[in-house]
Design a binder for these strands. Sequence first.
DNA 1: TTTGTTACCGATACCGGTATCGATAACATT
DNA 2: AATGTTATCGATACCGGTATCGGTAACAAA
Lengths: 331, 331
Amino acid sequence: MRKSTLEEVAAAAGVSKMTASRALRGTPDVSSETRQRVLQAAEQLSYIGNRLALSLSSQRTNLVAVVVPSMSNIVFPEVLAGISAGLEGSGMQAVFGISDYDAAKEREIIHDMLSWQPSAIIVTGLDQPEETVRMLKSAGIPVIQVMDLDGDPIDFNVGLSHGRAGEEMARALVGAGRKRFGYIGSALERDLRAAKRKAGFEKVLKQNGLHFVEQQIDSTFSSIALGKRLTTTMLASVPDLDCLYYTNDDMATGGLFACMELGVAVPEKLLIAGFNGLDLASALPVRIATSRSPRRVMGETAARLVREAIADPDGSHQKTIAFTPEITGIT
Amino acid sequence: MRKSTLEEVAAAAGVSKMTASRALRGTPDVSSETRQRVLQAAEQLSYIGNRLALSLSSQRTNLVAVVVPSMSNIVFPEVLAGISAGLEGSGMQAVFGISDYDAAKEREIIHDMLSWQPSAIIVTGLDQPEETVRMLKSAGIPVIQVMDLDGDPIDFNVGLSHGRAGEEMARALVGAGRKRFGYIGSALERDLRAAKRKAGFEKVLKQNGLHFVEQQIDSTFSSIALGKRLTTTMLASVPDLDCLYYTNDDMATGGLFACMELGVAVPEKLLIAGFNGLDLASALPVRIATSRSPRRVMGETAARLVREAIADPDGSHQKTIAFTPEITGIT
DNA sequence: TTTGTTACCGATACCGGTATCGATAACATT
DNA sequence: AATGTTATCGATACCGGTATCGGTAACAAA
């Protein structure tokens, strides 16, 4: 079956294109009898409007572009789900792109997305290179940067400070009496937020006259398996650590599993700390420490800002919405 | 900064719209000097082409619509990542929609997506209601149904048989000497593939003169926490089960955690079986049985089919690509 | 009867690109 | 000098809708 156009629907209903358009959109100025005929013709031809034409003509799209770095970690899909849910009922539609933690690819994806003339764009983090920032600024639409808070926002900003999250976690752990710290990380040169957490953590360690006794940083991305492997290696060479800080909960969970297999008592002998507050982490048979980040809520909040900014483009809106991660799992 | 148009770029370069268009697209018939001027003007105005106009005019989009039921389970993001990766370099762009396991919502989303005139559409499963099927058929583009295999495909089909996956798992478990089976599920009325697995499993049990001694099915969606809770409840009332089959690995993992807290020996006393073959499952300190489904590969395969079907619309292509899940974790 | 109103509908321009065809100038060929 | 070629560019139509304005018929009011 070939795609049918409004023209064809109109012809089938014996009216003009314009009248058909009005009938389908529910505009007034159409007799209910005519409307009926058009609706029927459209149904009959299984007509689906052409949004390209609609958007081009009306000079507005219902698109919200969203760029996230990855889909392999549940964190970003959760943000997307939040955005998608937060947009529901607004007539707006999210379009996603994956940058694979690659700045060049991100630039390219943003460019592609902008060419679809979205009404707003949501990007992850505040660390876009200058050229990307310029592109975003010149797009003339609301730009929402999510997840992070450490940096200069382009426009709107929804997130939490990863630097502070690292600091707080370190403070809590030092406060709990831990002294011999190790760090296990992954892909820090690409996951800049994880790097910020580590930096914040180290800063507080230093303030307390402490430091990471041992570090193990892999260049691949975080996973449970990687956390398990690196932990096994590290505990073999430095068995007397009493606290391990990880990139995130996935890595930390792998660490916990390693400990369970090695028979290392968690948290008595070794405290394990991650980041994110995954559902997984709270269901674990042994508690690990984590900073709970409101991922879905951040997505929903970003969506709300988009709706507000579009509903009232000239209004003065709150530009920054900060979340504070709650630390759990330290007793 | 206001969005600039090709017209403006052309004016700035002192040429016609048409020449500017050619220069930017790298078409021949433009002197390198003129091309240079246009490129410079475009750069200067930070011009970004309008894909709406492009696609409307050229009558082709680079869009591939994708509809998945959820983002809360890592399974679907992985499929999306596979699709996204498989499309890379083709100039095509995936657009995602989330149906929340709701047939009505799915219908609506598919309708919305089709209005963007995608070049192909990928949907999850084979169980769309008749009206949705009609809509997909009349779209006149390649339709790829992924994940499932049990049913009548509209066009292309990439997936595995969940009915058989359930059967195979049951055969393996019965073969391993298990006799007293329990089932723990979630949202089966919406997650039809999980229901198919259960049906297949039960069929084989019956063939062996067995049945589920106890069932516990919640109406909410699968999660580790839910698996843990339901397992704790079930083991309290029926402690002598020797095998538990779950909706999926998330639920099964929760079950394992419950067992670890209750001190139930896994797998000696109780064997735990899920589905998916998540990374999580293989990193667990105790092995659980699972059927490994090639989620990312299914996404990549779907993307490949899309590319082939679009590159050669009239060619005869293989319509169905079947995967067989590998069972692991039974010793 | 004339004049307003109102309800309904159509003609036309336009959104921002691309496809197509034709025009022009410069140069080579006969 | 006349004719062909080639390289380069522009004018126009069109993609499929919507915005805008104007037209017609029916009916009410004066």
